[in-house]
């Protein structure tokens, strides 16, 4: 077995491809989430998709649809409860998403499904089936296209929603748009890293890029670059160590973040030390 062995297997090549695509979509959305301060929202929506996934199995729908619907439900319910109580948004979110996640777990143990809970929770990119792969790619493609079309409006919404609305943009629409895109991205990443770890894909690349540049366009590119690299690295390494692929991808993300954090040319730890010295 040498370093090129993984590429002799078609499942590895497919996994590398799916990993790269999912990494790219997550990376793009991640820039917006980090700037908007929606990391917890990412975590919440990703956990909240579980009952949707199980429900979709029950009804014979595509998992994508169920996941998307229950992810959005979580976000909308959070917003609604927040505006009708005096409790802060992050607290409400904590209640809603754990509630939905628990509901999903109960539902799962009560119904016989052919799906493995482990695959949903931790992803199964090496064993991805053709149908799941197509669903993943479609979700990724739709999400990515929409983000790229709306990227300037979404950026303005994150930066200064008051101005966005002063010049006649529909900020309510943009809010729900960003939520829908978040749910779509999560749906696309489920197969790769699973519910538990997807938040890492949604937050880390944007943070890494944030440390390395002060321009949004460059941030997008750095984020996509680091995320795709991490996905491929994770898939590749997991082949040799026989470890959980999703976890390997997330570890690679964390490693890249650590590198940017320490060695970043302007906002890195060492650069800051040097400026002080």
């Amino acid at each position: 077995m040498n370093l090129l062995t993984p590429f002799q297997y078609s499942f590895m090549n497919e996994a590398l491809f799916v990993g790269a695509v999912v990494g790219a979509v997550c990376a793009v959305l991640s820039c917006y989430l980090v700037l908007k301060g929606w990391s917890l929202m990412g975590d919440a929506v990703s956990h909240a998709v579980l009952p949707g996934v199980v429900g979709a199995y029950l009804l014979g729908w595509p998992i994508t649809v169920g996941a998307f619907a229950s992810g959005l439900l979580c976000a909308v319910a959070t917003g609604w409860i927040k505006s009708n109580t005096r409790i802060k948004e992050d607290t409400v979110m904590g209640i809603v998403f754990t509630g939905l996640f628990a509901f999903g777990l109960v539902l799962f143990t009560k119904v016989e499904t052919e799906a493995h809970l482990n695959h949903i929770l931790f992803g199964n990119i090496l064993g991805i089936e053709r149908g799941d792969m197509i669903e993943t790619l479609v979700a990724a493609f739709v999400t990515l296209t929409l983000i790229l079309f709306m990227r300037k409006d979404l950026l303005l919404f994150c930066f200064d929603s008051a101005h966005a609305s002063a010049i006649g943009l529909n900020t309510n629409l943009l809010y729900y748009m960003l939520l829908a895109l978040l749910a779509g991205t999560i749906v696309a990443s489920l197969q790769a890293v699973g519910i538990i770890l997807v938040v890492a894909m949604l937050v880390t690349p944007g943070c890494t890029a944030r440390l390395l540049t002060d321009r949004f366009d460059r941030m997008l590119m750095v984020s996509v670059g680091s995320s795709v690299l991490a996905s491929c690295l994770g898939v590749y390494v997991s082949f040799f160590i026989n470890g959980s692929t999703g976890a390997c991808i997330v570890l690679a993300q964390a490693l890249l973040f650590a590198l940017a954090f320490v060695f970043g040319p302007k906002h890195g730890l060492l650069a800051a030390r040097k400026r002080l010295a």
Binding site: H163, I167, R218
Partner: peptide, 26 residues
């Protein structure tokens, strides 16, 4: 509308030119 300074995230990765351009989006 020119917001109060405290309401702006000054670390946001946009340039002076980007901000001026935002006035033209509409």
């Amino acid at each position: 509308y020119v917001p109060q300074s405290e309401e702006v995230d000054w670390t946001f990765p946009v340039s002076v030119w980007d901000v001026a351009m935002m006035g033209r989006y509409g």
